[in-house]
Amino acid sequence: MNKLIYPAIATLILLGSAFAFVATSYKIADGYNIEFSSSDAGGVFKTFKGTIVFDEQNPAASKFDVNIDVASINTGNGLQNKHAKSDEWFDAAKYPQIRYTSKSFTKTGSGYQVTGDLQIHGVTKPTAIPFTFQKTATGGVFTGSFTVNRNDFKLGKPGGDVGEQIKIDIKVPVTK
């Protein structure tokens, strides 16, 4: 009997620690900001949804599966919005969503980095996004910034007034 006690305790501790490492599922709270900017164009996407599971202690257990409604683009100018949604750019009618699905997470010196598939305009590219997570009383705030080349996603024509490198800044408050 005594022989069984220690393995049983060890198993219990192991199971307990596994529960302690279960990543937290967060809800996206209001006040998020998905902003893009280039040399001649800039704007925000107003609608952002998805699943965010994140564990600071064990980033490998985390999971991001988020999407942006392309039609929610707002550049601050009605004509530009229409142009951005047209088939020359995002083609919102054919590709209504921008999607990001995480594949792996790593801890970095200043925060974390998620690597995953970014799908824009029907083109999927592996994309790494460095980000930070700041805990708050009710959840936390994810902040990240990265750059994509619009030509990789066949957005617009190469060259032209709009810069090819598009900087994307993300700030997403979340609640538990």
Binding site: G43, V44, T75, G76, N77, G78, Q80
Partner: peptide, 17 residues
Amino acid sequence: PIAYRLPRELETPELFP
């Protein structure tokens, strides 16, 4: 007004002109 860029928190810039 056609080329004017409104603050992004305003929802319907297409109605501004």
